[in-house]
Amino acid sequence: MLEDFVDSFLNLDIVLRAMPILWRGLVQTLLLAAIVVPLGLAHGMAIALLSRARSRWVRWPLAVWTDTFRALPPLVLLIFLYAGLPFLGVDLGPWGAVALAFFLNTGSYYGEVLRAGLDSVPPGQMEAARALGLRPSLALWLVVIPQAVRNVLPDLVSNTLEVVKLTSIASVVALPELLFQARQAQSVTYNASPIVAAALAYFIILWPVVRLLSRLENRAVASGRG
């Protein structure tokens, strides 16, 4: 029983043989994260800033826009863009489809978090910055947004963790990231050890983030903001 377990999950021989392609996959995963996190943040910041508009002609379409992308599971959105759009002659390819899906989906979540952050900054901050002669855009970037980000930092980190984990769905559209390579190796060797190795890689990279979050969240609870 134990031998079976070691043989099918912790087979060092197979992991070593799969190492080069697993490594390539890991690099692609990190690259993917480095692309989609800024994309999501940019979209989220745009949503958060637009949601402060007073006109209902801005607020309503914005609410429909974000709720739509929050109601759709990210994988559904990704498949739609990857497999659906080519019927219209628009072929984004794996990278394009993943980038656009993450831009739309994770942007809606970042938008919610950043909006809460902007709301948490007292209006007096903006007024004081304006009184000091800062232009509105400068006051926003130098005074309001830094405080907003700090106030919702645990949620931003938590969301970013989810985004990095979510990059694994790119394997479904054959983007050669970590999970995709692990599955390739698994299907060639008929052995799950490469997938275990991939899981271990995710865990090693993301565990410190989980620990950090746990501490940030506990502090939030302790200070009555939980």
Binding site: S8, L161, K165, S168, L179, I195, A198, L206
Partner: peptide, 19 residues
């Protein structure tokens, strides 16, 4: 919290038959 759900699903689905 650290593992992507799809990784866990794939691991259980393709891994457990080996046992």
């Amino acid at each position: 919290r650290a593992l992507p759900p799809l990784v866990i699903i794939v691991l259980l689905y393709f891994g457990l038959p080996g046992m």
